[in-house]
Computed example of a mutant assay.
Amino acid sequence: MKAAILKDFGKPLYLEQVESPKLGTGEVIVKVIAAPIPHYAKSVFSGERQYMLELPLAPGAGGIGIVIAVGPDSTKLKEGDWVLCDPTVRSRDNSVNPDIALQGISARGKGGLKLQQYYRDGSFAEEMRIPTENAILIGNLTNDEAVKWSALNIFLVPFGGLLSIDLKAGETIAISGATGFYGSAAVATALAMGAGCVLALGRNKTALDHLVSIFGDRVRPVVLTGDEETDKEKIQNTAPNLIDCVLDILPPSVSANVVRTAIMTVREYGRISLMGGVGMLGGKDLELPYTWIMRNSVTIKGQWMYRREAPQQLISLVKAGLLSLDHFEITEFNLEDINEAVEYAANEKGAFKLTVVKP
């Protein structure tokens, strides 16, 4: 089969003929039809992000495909099924504190790296091997529909954060980083989950106004100035009610001050989910006042990716018509043009911009 191989950080991906992955117990083999390219893939492959990634391997985090082989312990999946390939691979020998790897892109700790050393088949290939539980049934699709459905991988990230703070129908939530690649998806997902109002925080007025044009007046834009006290007051004055929760999903390049501003607008007993990359590349870390957290009974949760059941729940939102996959402007590339595709994704990383490779 053909696969794009990352051999060295800072070097192009090499398109090669490699051996097809071999099936083991507890695994399935999927023919990859469409795979999204994260906007940050270039910075991972260059080594800039310093992610745990042992080379060489076929990168690519998840996608949409067709099952072509199942293991002997599979009771529901069968050949020919269309599935979401969930890239969040968890170890099976500790359900309380599993090690985690993002197949083809990163790992968490030494245990996650060990997982990644085994699951080396990312989605930038014609076929990939994934754990059985990571093949999530979708239902019949066409190849063209599969490209659109690959946006699920984008929605899944903020969905994990929103689930972690138990966003409820009718609540007011502030999205810190609302105009970005994942932030715009967070706005759409929060509305699909029933948020009464989404405060979209950002510095780009045009991008914020675009969100309002898509989703209507349940989205209230807040153009940030960079001054903490001024912005805190603007956010709270824009909200129709007290702010129940905040989701931060800002990239590593942003100052921690911006995160703190958003967080400190939440009401008493408010909930906060931290999913962004602030501090990842150095710089000042997030500093929150102990007394404010304690006296306001604020819950702060860190969330990396999402719970195991989240992909199936997200698919249900789409099938119910609550979450639309039509918001994305999708640009398609063939596997032969993978390096061009990675470069394109890095430059087209705004709201609802999606780059997809079709192996």
Rank of each mutant, 00 (worst) to 15 (best):
V223N: 09
C197I: 02
E48F: 13
P72W: 07
G194Q: 05
A41M: 12
P98Q: 13
Q312Y: 07
I214C: 12
I64T: 07
Y290I: 10
W292E: 12
L211E: 02
V254P: 07
G170V: 10
T75Y: 10
L199Q: 07
I154Q: 12
S255C: 10
I214N: 05
G277L: 04
I293C: 08
I68A: 07
G170E: 10
D81S: 11
L201R: 00
A58H: 05
C85T: 15
V89H: 12
L156G: 13
Y306N: 06
T142Y: 11
D209W: 01
K31T: 08
G139K: 09
M264A: 05
P21V: 02
A69M: 04
R307C: 03
A239N: 10
Y290E: 08
A320V: 03
I214R: 15
V219T: 06
K284S: 13
I154M: 12
G226A: 10
E54T: 15
T179S: 14
R129S: 06
G71E: 02
L325I: 10
L163R: 15
E48M: 13
Q103A: 11
Y119S: 05
K148Q: 13
D144M: 08
K2A: 04
L163P: 00
N140G: 03
Y118H: 15
E332P: 07
M1Q: 14
G111R: 11
L115Y: 09
L23D: 04
E340L: 12
C197W: 01
P158V: 01
P131T: 06
S106K: 08
L247Y: 02
G183W: 00
A200C: 03
G277T: 01
K168S: 12
Q312L: 13
V198A: 09
T206F: 05
Y269G: 05
I37P: 03
A41N: 08
Y269V: 02
I33C: 02
L84S: 09
Y306L: 03
R90V: 01
K2W: 11
S150T: 14
D121V: 05
A185L: 07
L113R: 15
G160L: 02
A69W: 04
F45K: 04
I330C: 12
K148F: 05
A146M: 12
L156F: 05
Q313V: 03
I243G: 04
S106M: 09
R307Q: 14
E127C: 07
G302V: 00
S273E: 06
N237H: 13
I5Y: 05
D248I: 01
A341D: 03
E79W: 02
G180P: 00
V32A: 09
V157R: 12
E126W: 07
A34L: 07
L163G: 06
P38Y: 06
L242F: 03
L152I: 11
V30A: 00
L199D: 03
A262T: 09
G10S: 08
L15F: 12
G109P: 11
W82K: 06
D285I: 09
E127Y: 14
E228T: 15
C85V: 15
K114Y: 04
L250C: 12
S150I: 09
G279F: 02
L286G: 08
A346C: 04
T132S: 14
Q303V: 07
K110T: 02
L77F: 10
K234S: 13
V198E: 05
V212K: 13
T172I: 06
D73N: 15
E16D: 09
K205I: 08
G277V: 00
N134T: 09
